[in-house]
């Protein structure tokens, strides 16, 4: 049980990183990004390629992979999402981003085939023994990386001019536009940032789990559940949602049965939504991030 909690908390960091991009994209653009999982896997492949071809450590590769994925994210926004009409953007975005996910999956299976890949660094299976319990080093570093990345995201949104423009766009897009905020530019950069967090998470994902081009299907259902539980658009909510999903599945899987683990999470999710339909930290109206 204790081992389950330790695993759950550490793994939550990775989920939080993946889900923060998802919720950021929704918060800024009201776009439900079904391609977030595929972007995480693409990030994992990029990291895998840098490691196998050039020996670059997956953690050190993160600046490079995030830069590439930022560009991919901006491109996806410009090509596929910008043409969508404001009024039905949320509904249409589900279909459009799902198509993007399928496109990415196809490209990945052509480039890297459909075999499983995993990134095996020398330290990938190392763990520390603390009071008889094992703490995986990679999971611990991934957790710390997530804290750093989420901290940076927080600073970016709260302390910079860009962040103020983002928040203004979220709160009142019309007024922001009148005050000179370029909403299109903010949306493109926002989507790029979401993709960049996916890249950072992808590096860690590749260290923790074997993956193939189809791995994003399992991932996206969990990510959507996390952001719905935490409240769409709330980064803090994504962190709490990640903790709930990760700890509950780990504890149930280790203490009871792995079969019931996903079920338990959905019971929690449905219970929260029954009492609080907008999720734990979601707001009824626009205005939070």
């Amino acid at each position: 049980m204790v081992q389950g909690v330790i695993l759950g908390v550490l793994t939550a960091g990775v989920y939080a990183l993946m889900a923060s991009g998802q919720t950021l994209i929704f918060g800024i653009m009201r776009v439900v990004n079904m391609a977030q999982g595929a972007m995480v896997i693409l990030g994992a492949y990029l990291s895998y390629q840098l490691f196998t071809s050039f020996g670059v450590d997956p953690f050190l590769a993160i600046p490079a992979t995030t830069a590439v994925m930022f560009t991919v994210g901006v491109a996806v926004q410009l090509i596929f999402l910008r043409p969508l009409h404001q009024d039905d953007r949320t509904q249409l975005s589900v279909l459009v981003t799902f198509a993007v996910a399928l496109l990415l999956e196809g490209v990945m299976s052509v480039l890297w085939s459909t075999s499983d890949r995993s990134i095996n660094t020398g330290y990938v299976n190392a763990s520390w023994t603390v009071l008889g319990y094992q703490i995986s080093l990679v999971r611990l570093w991934a957790f710390l990386l997530s804290l750093v990345a989420l901290g940076l995201l927080h600073v970016l949104l709260r302390r910079t001019r860009f962040g103020r423009a983002v928040r203004a766009s979220v709160q009142n897009p019309e007024s922001a536009r009148l005050l000179g905020v370029d909403a299109d530019r903010i949306a493109a950069i926002g989507f790029g940032l979401g993709a960049a967090t996916a890249a950072a998470a992808g590096s860690v994902y590749g260290l923790l789990y074997p993956f193939n081009s189809g791995s994003h299907y399992d991932l996206i259902s969990q990510l959507l559940s996390i952001v719905v539980l935490g409240g769409l658009g709330s980064i803090g909510g994504a962190v709490v949602g990640s903790l709930v999903i990760s700890v509950s599945t780990a504890v149930v899987a280790s203490a009871f049965s792995p079969i019931w683990a996903p079920m338990t999470f959905f019971v929690v999710l449905l219970s929260v939504l029954l009492i609080r339909p907008r999720g734990l930290f979601g707001t009824a109206a626009r205005g939070a991030l």
Partner: peptide
């Protein structure tokens, strides 16, 4: 099931 660590634990 992505993470088999809890069960293996």
């Amino acid at each position: 099931t992505m993470d088999l660590s809890p069960m293996m634990g």
